[in-house]
Write a protein that binds this DNA or RNA. Structure first.
Length: 280
DNA sequence: TTGAGTGTTGTCGA
DNA sequence: ATCGACAACACTCA
């Protein structure tokens, strides 16, 4: 489900809903969602107060009195907030009960998500967070940085952009959309673009993600933010889920291929493997 | 009915 | 070290 824009929307919702609330108890119905010992996880959270909720890449970071709770939604993780009774669902797996009687429930159909409690200040020191690249909408994501990073990289454009070590936040939807916007084939060698192409790609990533954040993300099948609201960026998709439909730029039917196991959508005319002529 | 496909990423083997 | 395949799991669709 969630790429950067969706996680950002969840973060915003959680900040509205659970800031300053104090946890009374925690229930875990599927231990594999918890990294580390789930008994300790439940114990340590009692009496912790929520300060603020942040985001790093696709990770949510819930800042507590003495700890940080790292939460990754992976494919289908969601948070639901309830003021009264919690409707029964076979996919509700983790329950945070607050002293005011309200609850935050982690729901995950596929159980791929992960929750990890670490000491305050240690979230960004975890190995998987430490190797993340810069935020695409932050100051560190400069064109110069991006060019140098991609020139050092090996492999094909799309897999390299999905790896999160050069820039965070892109997933299968937004990488396809960014490559369409930049008119680059997903199988181009990532270290062999022209400077003009690097510039187009850099700009495309920023503009696609900015608009998607503004629209509250994309709701393709099931995504909802913590307030229960759908995203609206799906109205703006040009290639993802548009296989066979005419390209919005040139009319050629959108193609779908498999690239490293991921469905990959692109326009075979606008995003040719040999499109150097676009720079002339 | 069965198999393929689904928004992610950590791990494993070459 | 790096890259691709696979696993974690449930559900939908052809």
């Amino acid at each position: 489900m969630p790429e950067l824009p969706e996680v950002e929307a969840v973060k915003e919702g959680l900040n509205q809903l659970i800031r300053h609330k104090t946890i009374q108890s925690v229930d875990v119905l599927w231990d594999n969602l918890i990294l580390g010992d789930s008994t300790r996880f439940k114990q340590m959270l009692v009496n912790q107060q929520i300060e603020t909720i942040g985001r790093r890449g696709k990770f949510l970071i819930i800042n507590l009195t003495d700890f940080q709770l790292i939460s990754h939604l992976r494919m289908e993780g969601k948070y639901d907030y309830y003021r009264t009774e919690i409707p029964s669902s076979k996919h509700n797996h983790v329950f945070f009960h607050f002293i005011d009687g309200t609850s935050l429930v982690y729901n995950d159909v596929r159980k791929f998500g992960r929750l990890q409690l670490v000491n305050k200040g240690m979230a960004l020191e975890q190995p998987n967070l430490r190797k993340l690249g810069p935020e695409p909408l932050g100051d560190a994501f400069t064109l110069n940085y991006f060019i140098h990073a991609l020139k050092k990289s090996r492999g094909l454009l799309k897999p390299v952009l999905l790896a999160q070590n050069i820039v965070v936040g892109l997933g299968n939807i937004y990488v396809d959309e960014s490559l369409w916007q930049a008119q680059l084939h997903p199988k181009r060698a990532a270290n062999q673009l022209t400077n003009k192409e690097y510039q187009r790609l850099h700009q495309a990533i920023i503009s696609v993600l900015s608009l998607a954040v503004e629209m509250g993300g994309s709701t393709i099948r099931t995504y909802k933010n913590a307030l229960g609201e759908a995203g609206q960026f799906q109205q703006h998709l040009h290639v993802y889920g548009r296989t066979g439909l005419p390209c919005d730029r040139c009319g050629q039917p959108i193609e779908k291929i498999k690239l490293n196991g991921r469905g990959t959508h692109f326009c075979p005319r606008c995003q040719s493997l040999n499109n150097d002529f676009l720079d002339s």
